[in-house]
Amino acid sequence: MARRRLPFSRRHLLLMPLALLFVLPILQLVSSSFMSTDEITRSPPKLVPGRLDLGGYQRLFTETGIVHWFANTVLVSTVAVVSHLVLCSLAGYGFARLSFTGRAPAFVLVLLTSMIPPQLLLIPTYVMFARAGLTDTLAAAFLPWTASAFGIFLMRQFFLSLPVELEESAALDGCGTLRTFVYIALPLARPALVTLAVLTLISSWNDLLWPLVAIDADTHRTLQSGLAGFRGIHHTQWPELMAGNVVATAPLLAIFLLAQRQFVATVTGTVAPHGS
């Protein structure tokens, strides 16, 4: 199919600088990571490094725990995403399509927990984990990420929006509840699953407060808590810091750009009310 070329418009004069405003700081971050301290702190600042300096990356990988931090973050995010996809889609389907005793109060309970700010949970969760001997372990980093009220809610809303007829005819054909869920409902829920995966990935990868509180040992830190602590110790070592920021951001950015289209479509479709 031949794509019609979209027209140019005067609006480019507005949109071009706007886009630059959002992207330039990120470009500056990348280019600063390839500069020496001297070049970064020179005034006026430069966008393109005069000489490609890999010292920041070299010292980042040899003198800090970045390799551990990266591996830990990948582990935490993987557990978070897989567990969210399995548990929240099961629960979302249960709340949307199955009728069982206690469904309404259980769903209200889930909605209520989403009102609780994370600050309220910080201290008791920390104490709970400390009592269980789990602080300073990797389990502490990922256990709070296993399921969320938001995930359950998102999946329930999506299942509710699907036509029920397919599932009904599967049931008539003698298909059990679990099989109907796995073979009929889940494949249709792909856009919601992609959105849930991307949002869970972003929030678990980027979380700072919990790992900052729950984890002390340098080898058990995540990228965010490692980088946040980095600033105090190596105060003026900008190249390492910027290189660390690039390492912490690049994988997420790559995945997001791949999933972007579906993600934006579903988020906006779930949040924005339709019809009026």
Binding site: A91, L98, L109, I152
Partner: peptide, 10 residues
């Protein structure tokens, strides 16, 4: 069945 689905996450 319902609780098997909704229970763990809840």
């Amino acid at each position: 069945t319902g609780w098997a689905f909704a229970g763990p996450a809840t």
